[in-house]
């Protein structure tokens, strides 16, 4: 079942990528390539943007699937670890201090913020921290990073910096180049590999902590690999594109009924479906006729994600009733 799903998703990606290169404010007809600057538009603007969508979507999809398996909760989202707000705080500080003027320093600041959040999480959760402590520590870090981000915005040195910060926080892939691809791809791929390596441990967790330990799972090693895997995938994403929420929540839900529901069977299909979702959503944002600029990807996914979350909650409530 899984192999067929993976092949289907790969086929969808093979179709979607070329289409995404053609779609946009300027439509490019592949059979009549008389459009001015077509090569520049495709290879310098749309191809890096498409690759970035694939990489970040795959990272968020895999992170969401792993997170739900780790917390054994279908409502879990990679954002719960506090890594994304930590990375956002790092990025905001680069705007605040003016270092964001150097395009390489903004992602570096964001990655440092993500690393700080990961370190703090590992420190608070401790060696024997259970899942409840882990989740609460993540929520506390999210809340602290969010408060510090708001403080940084309120104390912005100039209105221009404030506007830059707010726009950046909304999350988007517009105007991203090959530089962002090179920054985000290696950590995301390493993160996905780490998450894939814990698939069997996540399967064992299906039966609860005690049964998982009796099946040979080392909870400390699993926790460390989860922090590193989620930190790298989510941190790299926020570093180059701002906060893009809900992908990690929605994608595993859409994919789960098509698998045998083991967390390990969900990782690769979620990564592929996440890549597809982000690519298609970014394309739609690009071609939506909005006056002025284009719809920010982060906003579009939140608009899509919030009702999805609500439907999920209502369905769960019906199940519990």
């Amino acid at each position: 079942m899984n192999r067929r799903l993976i092949l289907l998703l790969l086929a969808a990606l093979v179709l979607a990528v070329p289409l995404s290169l053609l779609a946009g404010r300027v439509w490019i007809d592949p059979f009549a390539p008389q459009t001015r600057y077509a090569a520049v538009i495709v290879f310098e603007l749309r191809l890096p943007r498409a690759i970035l969508a694939l990489v970040l979507g795959a990272g968020l999809g895999a992170a969401g699937a792993a997170m739900q398996g780790f917390l054994r909760n279908p409502l879990a989202d990679p954002g719960l670890f506090g890594v994304a707000p930590g990375a956002a705080l790092g990025a905001v500080l680069s705007f605040w201090t003016g270092y964001a003027a150097s395009a390489w320093l903004l992602p570096v600041f964001a990655l440092c913020g993500a690393a700080g959040a990961m370190a703090l999480l590992a420190l608070i959760a401790g060696r024997d921290g259970g899942i409840a402590l882990f989740t609460l520590a993540g929520l506390m870090i999210s809340s602290l990073a969010g408060a510090l981000t708001s403080l940084a915005i309120s104390l912005s040195p100039t209105p221009f910096a404030m506007s830059e910060i707010v726009t950046w926080l909304m999350g988007a892939l517009a105007d991203r180049s090959w530089r962002e691809v090179w920054i985000a791809t290696p950590p995301t791929l390493v993160g996905i590999a780490l998450l894939a390596s814990v698939g069997r441990s996540l399967d064992a967790l299906t039966l609860g902590d005690a049964a998982a330990r009796s099946l040979g799972v080392d909870p400390r090693r699993l926790q460390a690999l989860m922090i590193a895997g989620i930190g790298l995938t989510v941190g790299a994403g926020v570093a180059v594109a701002g906060i893009i929420g809900f992908v990690g929540l929605i994608v595993p839900h859409l994919v789960r009924p098509l698998t045998d529901r083991r967390p390990s069977s969900l990782l690769v299909p979620s990564a592929l479906a996440g890549a597809l979702l982000l690519l298609v959503a970014d394309c739609l944002c690009r071609i939506l006729p909005l006056s002025g600029s284009e719809l920010r990807l982060g906003i579009a996914l939140s608009l899509l994600g919030a009702p999805f979350f609500l439907v999920l909650l209502l369905r769960m409530r019906r199940g519990l009733a």
Binding site: L205, L207, G208, A210, S214
Partner: peptide, 12 residues
């Protein structure tokens, strides 16, 4: 080892 109240998180 069979725990006292085994949980099953997913509908496998």
């Amino acid at each position: 080892y069979l725990p006292q109240s085994p949980q099953i998180a997913w509908d496998i």
